[in-house]
Amino acid sequence: MAETKEQFEPKIIGFLCNWCTGAASDLAGTTRAQYPPNVHPIRVMCSGTVDPVYMIKALLSGADSVMMGGCHPGDCHYVSGNYKARRRVAMLKQIFKSLGLDDNRVWARWISASEGPEFAKFMNQITEETRKQGPSSMANDWAI
């Protein structure tokens, strides 16, 4: 690819839970917090709905990073969905680590409904850090 690192615009998929992170993303908008448009949100009911397979699929289909946003532990509309999600992310990250894949491209963040600024901050962070990491070879390898 001809893209240099400066121009590189990472592609990111974000799974946002309906109750907290999704609401925070809306609040970020209401307060006009600015962040880069690199994250493409997919609304899910709960972070517990985020199948690690979705994350793998995203990373193999062109995403340079993937994120899951949920309610803070202890605050889940479905009691314990985020605890289960946390385990799954831990496992996925471990598999990536074991295989020498870049587990830093798998992100999770708990952002409550009132944390609009936090959401924007995180969007900046994930975009910038992914940008620093450069294009994901997983995302760009046609032969996998």
């Binding site: 809306d26 970020a28 600015q34 448009p37």
Partner: peptide
Amino acid sequence: EELAWVHKDKRDL
């Protein structure tokens, strides 16, 4: 809220 209001100066993206 998830697009226009948060990506003001980034028309292309």
